[in-house]
Amino acid sequence: MNELIQAIGFGLVTASVLALAAVGLTLQFGVTNYANFAYGDIMTLGVYLTWALTTTAHLNFAIALVVAVVAMAGITAAVAEGVMGPFVRRRSPTVVLLMVTFGLSLILNSVILAIWGANSDAFQLPGTQPLHFGPLLLTPIQLTIIGGSIVAMVAIHLLLTRTGIGKRMRAVSDNRDLARVSGISPTPVVRATWAITGALATLAGVSLAVEASQFSPGLGEGFLFVIFAAVILGGVGRPYGAMLGALVVGLVTEVVALWLPQYKLDVAFVVLILVLLLRPQGLIASAGKV
């Protein structure tokens, strides 16, 4: 029983990391209407940027993270504009767009390898001593991840419901044609979305790297399929669905880890297959969007 409670605790941590990543991925997927296979590498790049700022530029970790998040928002928006933009403007079929993101994934990963090499690195952070909450053991780092993720989710919620750009993002995601007809120009919305994606990817990547206590250039790529599982479980283009999907996948993986620790993430694949077979529109049903 205690083990189960502990697993649920870890599940919340994983879910927090996953929620950051999944919301970033699903927002972009919904708005641009194609999946981004370079997302894992954007996460990794954010991690290495943060790491470089702490080690090379000797910045305090928190400051480095903020700088990296802002920088990655810009870099992601710029790369999307420069590389994806021409294909989108030409109305390339989805198949081609997917290939381009796949190519971007390889390029970004190679850039990381070329600059930082193939070895593992780690953030040196305080707060690795676990605290007791009854049967539950969580480190201050893990608690910070959970707290930070909740704050980010609330911020996303406010962005989507209270700001003009957020409302337009939802409109484009729900129905691109209708949004266009009602006078919403997709271009600024798409740019803003990519920037938010880059920011969330960096937050998610750093959380993942800190939680796993070390990272290597394969960090994001190895995690990407879990993110996709959460995104599809929640329904593509649905940020609240992605949060729910992240929670489910996070808990399931950590509970399964009780029996099959080395395959814990692979359970996400089982979840994905089940969703595709049984409920392809995701947990939160929507009209006509599959």
Binding site: F29, Y34, A35, F37, T94, V95, L98, L224, F225, F228, A229, I232, V236, A268, F269, L272, I273, L276, P280, V290
Partner: peptide, 13 residues
Amino acid sequence: RLRSDYLAITTLC
């Protein structure tokens, strides 16, 4: 499923 994204995603996973 209709979307080619889903096949791409599932194969990757």
